[in-house]
Every structure is written in structure tokens, then in C-alpha cells.
Design a binder for these strands. Structure first.
Lengths: 337, 337
DNA sequence: GGCTTGTGAGAAAGCGCTTTCAGATTCATG
DNA sequence: CATGAATCTGAAAGCGCTTTCTCACAAGCC
């Protein structure tokens, strides 16, 4: 039994193809990869043999021989948040155009296993794209220290020697504050995302900077899901806020649902603003005022940076992608009186 | 430069670890894999060396030597449909519990590239989970003929020699029809999913069988996204239907949005039923009557079947998971008169 | 025509790991 | 005390591929 434990049928190897075509394995390799000139007649025989035997090169063997896997890995916290599939689509497309496969892992919002997952990805991918705004700084440092191509997505950390690309969360929240200030709001509440999240702290930093607009902010602990928004929304009414900002659209939509149930009119009595602009076209109950980041561009850029890093060994500066304000139906001037 | 083209720093190999610990590579391997008894003192030295050098086994080399990659591949049509992330969560969890990584690929609803993607997955995974209700039967046959572990998810095809597990779409739609019939509906419209989709044809088959309940059905071409539901909804009013069934929840929600805009009251003037019960808790505008499949169980079962197939070389019978009716606010008796 | 070039194909080494195989210790036994 | 069995470890082969290296042959030159 020359092949596998489970008595699986023998795989057809490159030598089998060579034998069938009457050439050496090296020639088959050259034909298939186009790495050297081969007599057209031989090449034709090789192609025939490949077809007839249904040969497919073994990716592990190729990876080992070439010193690269032809794969990039992506770690996302939660696929249930539409934000990430949107990014992933772009990542896949770019990776594919560079002839690479994409390996996706999800931490299910549990930062404690993310380190392991990334290690795992590094063992089997040429480069990894890390979307983790929650991983501890020290663990991040450990990971980036492993001279393995790594690009941070939606997290920019000074002093961490890894290329990074992120939406400009600070700027996005500033846009929101400007919009609210202009409408006349003075007291706003914020349903905060995960405490340890960098993305969240950037939003908070902006809210604090917005005091300059004459805005006073109350921060309420919440989370990142519609469920948590729904649960936390009741607290808002006690704060005296006339506008509610949130960690993301899911939270905002959950909050709106709860507020409606509580008889609070949105936006007449309370303006609500989302974050991210996830495309729930025609699904969400509310046309939400929010800020958007071009997620496609984000994914594309990050993947290109990773590709550069992998092939040239260095990459560009950390890059912020600016967000854009979309004023829709969930914001209005505060009720007068 | 003993390692790579790009002058990447030399990776630390198992021999390096051996050298550092003063043992052979074989011993390191044995310690790390626990495949044989090793003097505890040596083992300790090995572990130290591993830690100090930051050694991680090269997955490709392991794969090659062991004859398996430790990876399963999953192909889904579209990550933007919350249905699939839900399944993926379960798949990941089960795979991880068997010590396997998961490689996710997405065809972006383009069946023409799915064949290539699966071939790609087969080159680098021990087994693949295929969620493609649209792939042509002939291509499917080609794929299953390649004696490579493959489990079909949400598609059961007679004559195809691959294990399969699927939600009982037929039964689900029957539940819906029963519910509508009981409410007094006699004319229903159906916003059809992708034409070539097996999942869609199962639904249609049930609708046709529902004539037995005295239900007449009009089938309207639509699609699988909320956008297509929104676009197609206007057609419904011309059919004289008092209830609308749909390919999935996204379509239903899109349709409801449009119907509201058109001034059609749901459910008073038109009942609307979804399919899948995707968890858009507190996000969707409508509490949708729908049927659900335990997506977690589906993913879990499929992955277990694949695992069995990979380790034991055979697997269970095709399995249908029954769906469950959830009556919520989008259905009501037809308007009388 | 003998010589240097140039070209295309095979042989062989090596990627980093696992695993068989054989050898070196130790220990128990007659 | 010599001998066999029982342990543990290192050497070496091999997983399937790529990529040198080498060689045979054909063409081009004086």
C-alpha cells in the first residue's frame, strides 16, 4: 500500500503523468508551469496525459518545493457581521487575481483564541490579514515579531511594525458629531462597542474631541450586535440625550427597534446614528443615518499591501481610508422644548 | 541564502530544534506529536528549544509527509447571505474539534467558477463541503467521480454518489402551504429563487403538491437577494394572490419594504412568508412568518459526515433535516371581500 | 571538419516533515 | 555471567513537487 492509511485510492502523481506521456517528471513540471521551453509535441503529449489521468498537482508538495503555499489567511472576528463578508469578497477577488487561495478563519468574537488561530494561519499561509481590533497590544507585538507577512486591517497601532490599513474611525465619528451639532443637538449618548476594541476607542476619542462643538457625551456600555443594541437602548432615555450614536449599524438598528417598542419616536424624539453603513438594503426597518467606509477598497488595499509585503518584503505606510456621511431618515433636529 | 527567493529570513526547522535540544529531528517529531515514548528529560529540552526558537511546524511539509493536510474546504455561494455564516460557524467548530483548519471559498453566486474552486479546494484539503444548489448535475458528477471526500450540503441528488445532508426544503414549503391554507388563502404567489437551483426546485415542487390543499400558485421570477425581492414585489399585486411566498427571508424582507412603499398593507392585504429564518433579530422591519432549519445542526452534521468519510472511507445515507414553521406577524387571513 | 555555443530533456538533489528500520542501552532472566 | 527481550533514539528513506545541474545533440563559426 504505497499511499495512505485509509486505503484511499492512490493519487496520480507527476511521475505517473510523465510515464504516461513518455517524458520525465521534470518536463511535466516545466510544461505545466511554463518555466522553460519544451518541444510542442512533448507538451501536447503531456497535456493529453494530464487530462486522461485527471492529474492535479498536490498543493502541499508544491508549497514545500516552492517555499510558498499560494495561500493567504484572513482572520475575522465574526462573519455574522455583514461588514466582514463585504471585505472578504474584495480580498478573495484580489487574492485570486494573484493566483492565491484564501483561508478564512473566524474567532467568533473571542479574542482569547485569536492568537492561536493566527499562529495556525501562519503555518499554512504565505501571509495573513488580521482583522482584530480587540487583540491585546502585547499579543499583537508577539505576532508581528514573527517576521511573517502580516497586514492589520482596521487597526493602526503606533509602534507595531506591521503595515496596516483602516477606516478612519476617528474622522467618521467626527463627521457624525458635526452633523448632530449642526442639527442643534447638545447632549448625545454613545452605545459603546467592546471595551478593549481599538475601533471603539477611536470612536470615543472623537466623541471627546467633539466637546469643541459644544457636545456633551454620555457613554453607555453595550456591544457589537443588534441584540446588545436592543438590550442597552432602554438606558438611553434616562441620560437626557437628544441623539444616540452607536458602535455600529447593527447596534443602532437593534436600539431603534427597542426604542420604538418603548414608544420613543425616532428621529422626532431621539435621533439615532449608525456606523459602517452595512448594506442591509430593503431589509432594515430604518433608513439609518450613518457613516460608510468603502469596504471593497479596504479589502482590496489590504490585500495588495500584503501581496507587496510577501513579494517585495516591505510595504507602504499605515493608511487611513476616509469615511463618508450619509444622512438618511433617523436623524432630525432635537425636539424644541 | 538557503531559504527563499525573497531573502525572507530563514525559517526555523525541526532540525534546528533538534540541534538546539541536542537530539535528532525524529525525536523532536515524536515529542511534538506524542507518537512514541520519549525520555521526559529529553522531552523537556525539546519543549524548551521549541519555545526559545519560536518553532512552528511547516504545514505543507507535515501534509506531504502525513499524506493529509489537516484542512477541510467549504465552498459557499455567497457570504452575504447570513444563512452561510451560520452554517460556517458550526463547521469551523466541529472541524477545529477534530484538529482541522477550515478553508472557505465563495463563488459570489457565480456557478461557472464553482467547479474550478472545488478543484482548487481538493488540491489542498482532505475533504470538501459543497454548498452549491446551482451547479449543474453533470459537473457535480464529474466532481464526485474524483474519489475525493466530498459532502453535499443543501443538495441531495439521486444517482450522485456523495453523502449529502440538506434541510427538507420540500417539507418546509409544505408547512408554509398548510399554514396559508388553514388561514384561508387560495391564491398564492411565489418569488422564485435562481432558476437552476435545486433548493428552489424543491420549493416549487412543494408548491405544486399543495394544489391538494386547494392552493393555486403563480410563480414569478426573482432571485435570492433582498434587492431582487424589492424589485420583483410590484408584480405580485397583479396576480390576485392574497399571500406571497418567497425563496428566502432576504427576498421576503425586500418585498415587504417595496409593498409598504406601494401602500400594500402586510399582512392585512397581503400575507408574506419567508424561508430560512435567518437571524436578523431586531434588525428587520418585519417579524416574518417563516420556516427555519437548524443551521448549526446542519453544519455540524455535514462536517461529521465528512470527517467519517475521510477517516473511514464511507459515510451515512443522505439525510434531510426537517424545518419548523414560525408563525409571526407577516401572515393573516385574507381580506374578506 | 573540428571547435565552440546554444538548446532542450533527464537525473538528482532538496523543500521540512513523519515513520520505518536498525542499533545502542538497559534490564530481566536462566 | 552470558543472553534475550524490551526500550528508547538516531539514521535514512520517502511524501510529490520544483529546480538546479549535467549531458546529449544540433547548429554556427573559423
Amino acid at each position: 500500500m504505497r499511499n495512505l492509511r485509509q486505503g484511499r485510492p492512490a493519487r496520480v502523481t507527476i511521475s505517473d503523468v510523465g510515464a504516461a506521456a513518455g517524458v520525465s517528471a521534470s518536463t511535466v513540471s516545466r510544461v505545466l508551469n511554463g518555466t522553460a521551453k519544451v518541444d510542442p509535441a512533448l507538451a501536447a503529449r503531456v497535456h493529453d496525459a494530464v487530462r486522461q489521468l485527471g492529474y492535479r498537482p498536490n498543493a502541499a508538495a508544491q508549497g514545500l518545493a516552492r517555499g510558498e503555499w499560494g495561500t493567504i489567511g484572513v482572520l475575522v472576528p465574526n462573519l455574522a457581521n455583514p461588514y466582514f463578508p463585504d471585505v472578504l469578497k474584495a480580498v478573495s477577488a484580489v487574492a485570486r487575481s494573484h493566483g492565491r487561495r484564501v483561508m478564512v478563519m473566524e474567532s467568533n468574537d473571542d479574542p482569547s483564541i485569536e492568537h492561536d488561530l493566527v499562529e495556525d494561519l501562519m503555518r499554512s499561509c504565505d501571509g495573513v490579514l488580521l482583522c482584530s481590533s480587540r487583540m491585546e497590544r502585547s499579543e499583537l507585538a508577539l505576532l508581528t515579531a514573527r517576521d511573517h507577512p502580516l497586514v492589520l486591517l482596521d487597526r493602526i497601532v503606533s509602534g507595531i511594525a506591521a503595515p496596516a490599513v483602516s477606516a478612519d474611525f476617528f474622522g467618521g465619528m467626527m463627521l457624525i458629531c458635526g452633523h448632530l451639532a449642526q442639527l442643534g443637538h447638545r447632549r448625545v449618548a454613545y452605545l459603546s462597542g467592546p471595551e478593549v476594541s481599538w475601533a471603539n476607542s477611536e470612536r470615543i476619542r472623537a466623541l471627546e474631541a467633539a466637546r469643541a462643538f459644544g457636545i456633551a457625551v454620555t457613554i453607555l456600555p453595550c456591544g457589537s450586535t443588534s441584540r446588545s443594541g436592543y438590550d442597552a437602548a432602554a438606558e438611553v432615555t434616562g441620560t437626557g440625550a437628544t441623539a444616540l450614536t452607536t458602535y455600529n449599524d447593527l447596534v443602532a438598528l437593534g436600539a431603534v427597534t427597542r426604542l420604538r417598542e418603548l414608544g420613543v419616536k425616532v428621529p422626532e424624539e431621539l435621533s439615532v446614528v449608525g456606523f459602517d453603513d452595512i448594506a442591509l438594503d430593503h431589509v432594515a426597518h430604518t433608513s439609518l443615518t450613518t457613516v460608510s467606509v468603502p469596504r471593497g477598497r479596504l479589502g482590496r488595499l489590504a490585500t495588495e499591501m500584503l501581496e507587496t509585503l510577501m513579494t517585495e518584503g516591505h510595504s507602504a505606510e499605515p493608511t487611513y481610508l476616509s469615511m463618508e456621511l450619509h444622512v438618511r431618515d433617523s436623524t432630525a433636529p432635537p425636539a424644541t422644548g
